[in-house]
Simulated assay, not measured.
Amino acid sequence: MTAERPRRDWRDTVAEAADLALLGLVVAVAALPLLTLAPAVATAAAALHDRSVTGSWPPARTSLARFGRALPAGAAVSAVALAVAALLAADLLALATGRVPGGGPALAVTAVVVAAVLGYAGLVAVAVGRTGGRGWRSAARHTARTCARHPGAWAAAAGACGLATLLAALVTPVAVPILGGYALAALHALDARRRSAVPEPS
């Protein structure tokens, strides 16, 4: 006879929500120098992966060590990500203000492209989290193949990131970092669902 798993109640839900909010705030603080954005996200993704596998968060010492190991490669990833984000933001702004022809259709297509890029980047972060916060290049290649094989999962990740971006524009600025923890958790949940539904080839 197997023991029944303890039933979760509202206190567990509130505790998990608070943990994710704190995770988002910690990532925001760690990413303040900008070039530490990717290492901060990688460390948070690794912590979420540990949480999903073991049921508990990793010790602070483990997360600090992961952050330190992720800094060299992560700084380059941060620079590339920030450059791409700046270009896409400038494109959206130019279309929205009418400085570039195309109007509403071009703006809508660009917004879809931005959401797709965000979804891909989010899935890359999840893949990096599965390897302890390292291996950006291999994670990017693996995620590209995954997105090609499972476009539905990519679309779901893009939708989650798009919704988080929309909410970030609507909520008070102080609450924006909290959304980061929830968005990363949603991406982890989407990826875990895909992996359980369609096991990846070995």
Rank of each mutant, 00 (worst) to 15 (best):
A175S: 07
E16Q: 06
A38S: 14
D19K: 04
R61C: 10
T172Y: 03
R5N: 05
V124I: 11
F67S: 10
L107Y: 12
A155S: 05
G68H: 09
G103E: 07
L179F: 07
L25A: 02
L20Y: 06
Y120L: 12
V113D: 03
H150K: 10
W10F: 08
A18G: 15
T131C: 12
G180A: 15
G162P: 01
R7G: 08
G159V: 02
R11Y: 01
V113W: 04
L22P: 09
L184V: 05
Y120F: 15
V126R: 12
A28N: 07
A79D: 10
A60R: 15
R8G: 10
D19Y: 01
A175M: 05
R145A: 10
G119Q: 00
M1H: 11
G181D: 08
A189E: 14
G55P: 08
A116I: 12
Y120S: 05
V80E: 02
P173D: 03
P33N: 01
V80F: 07
V100T: 15
L20P: 08
G135R: 01
L123G: 04
L82I: 14
D191I: 05
S63V: 09
V29F: 08
A15E: 14
V53S: 13
G74F: 00
Y120V: 09
H150N: 15
A83S: 14
V174W: 14
D19R: 09
L166A: 13
A96I: 09
R66W: 06
L34D: 00
H188W: 01
A83K: 02
A45W: 11
E200T: 15
A76N: 00
G152A: 03
L64T: 10
M1V: 11
A86R: 10
S78H: 04
A85Q: 07
G181N: 06
A125W: 14
A73L: 13
L48N: 07
A155R: 00
P39Y: 00
A90Q: 14
G133A: 09
R134Q: 12
A96Q: 08
L34H: 08
A44S: 04
W10H: 11
S202Q: 14
P173I: 00
P58D: 05
A81H: 06
A175K: 01
R137Y: 12
A111H: 01
T2N: 11
A3Q: 14
P177Q: 12
P177E: 14
V109P: 05
L71Q: 05
V112A: 05
P72M: 08
H142Y: 00
A85T: 08
V198F: 10
L123W: 11
A121W: 12
A15S: 15
V113K: 04
D91V: 14
